[in-house]
Design a protein around this nucleic acid. Structure first.
Lengths: 197, 197
DNA sequence: AACATCATGTAAGTGGCTCTAACATGGAAT
DNA sequence: ATTCCATGTTAGAGCCACTTACATGATGTT
């Protein structure tokens, strides 16, 4: 019988984040409620407030979790590819869009306006951005990510971000895909990025 | 004395939309409440439900209003410019971003996930998109907006949309503007769009 | 081993919110 | 004048965020 109510539950915080993530994923951040997350975790509705200041801090935790998972995906899809190759940059863009389509509500939350976003969440977002910029820098033959690299990566980053959001908003017609994405992206990468050395 | 409580208030619906817009603009859609909007309009908290099915339908009305105002801006900034000129397309993009920065919360709402978006709101959004696509079509020497025009406009539309959102999310550093936007946009327009005939 | 402490849980309560139901009012149609 | 209906009100059910006061048990001290 492994089922014995543990002394003080163990790591409720993690369980709550997971429950929150599921709820957001299912119903959207707007419908998310602390009370439901608590019930899902099998604790009283007051328990979450021992681990999170308020509802928003719980959502922030879900956002951060999402950003970290996105960064992990970037690592996965570019594994083994040459730093700064068109292929690698393309894969990052596609992974980004894939994530958005796969878990729209969480993706929205990751880029939503929170009154006060924790430092950890900001860092997690920054890490995602940096992953792209490193490849852009390599493609430009730069050793580090400076202003110029940032400027060069901007149109790509924003374009992919825009595609992701417009897809979520159903702005792409019925089946959500009237045109093939990959060639458009590849074309953009090749045209927008300063050529390799 | 112009202050006499009118028989049945006149056009409460319009007043409520305006109040809602102000509230959303000020506090964000998440903090918006039907009750507050009603109080702001000077009616009971139940009154709004004579004009809107629920809270979401009120937000939808605010979104629609925003989309219509955006379309109006497009008309303004392209007035007198040649159809299909780089200048016109550029102005549309800048107006888009300008709107986003000027009223972030409403802009977010305009592209937010609503459970059920009214047809009117969809149409208003479509009108905005079409405004851009008409210029793109003209630039490509096409008489009408077909699949190819759509595909050509996609990277631009998405890029601008992405810039707007990333700006709102403060992803552009402290002062919200580490690089000049216009040259980047102009560059993108000139490189991405098939040349004029 | 006995005890104090502190993190982490619960129960109960406050005030606000969404939305509904039953009723009120007055403008417009007959 | 009478009726009807759109539009307003009051009252209330049910949910939620968050707080306060209390409970419990793991941990470190003596």
């Amino acid at each position: 019988m492994a089922e014995r109510k543990p002394y003080h539950h163990g790591d409720l915080k993690r369980v709550l984040v997971e429950a929150s993530r599921a709820l957001v994923s299912e119903k959207g951040a707007a419908q998310f409620s602390v009370a439901q997350a608590a019930r899902q975790a099998g604790v009283s509705t007051a328990a979450p407030y021992r681990h999170f200041r308020d509802r928003e801090e719980m959502l922030d935790a879900v956002a951060r979790d999402g950003l970290e998972r996105l960064a992990e995906r970037f690592r996965l899809v570019t594994g083994g590819l040459e730093l700064g190759s068109v292929e690698a940059i393309l894969r990052i863009g596609l992974a980004y869009i894939d994530f958005a389509v796969g878990d729209p509500a969480v993706f929205r939350l990751m880029f939503a306006e929170l009154q006060q976003k924790s430092d950890g969440t900001c860092d997690a977002g920054e890490a995602c951005h940096m992953h792209l910029l490193c490849h852009v820098a390599a493609r430009m033959g730069r050793a580090e990510v400076d202003e110029e690299v940032f400027a060069a990566g901007l149109p790509l980053w924003t374009m992919v971000h825009g595609i992701a959001f417009l897809k979520l908003d159903g702005k792409f017609g019925e089946d959500c895909m009237p045109v093939a994405l990959e060639p458009i992206l590849r074309n953009a990468v090749e045209r927008l990025l300063p050529g390799a050395p």
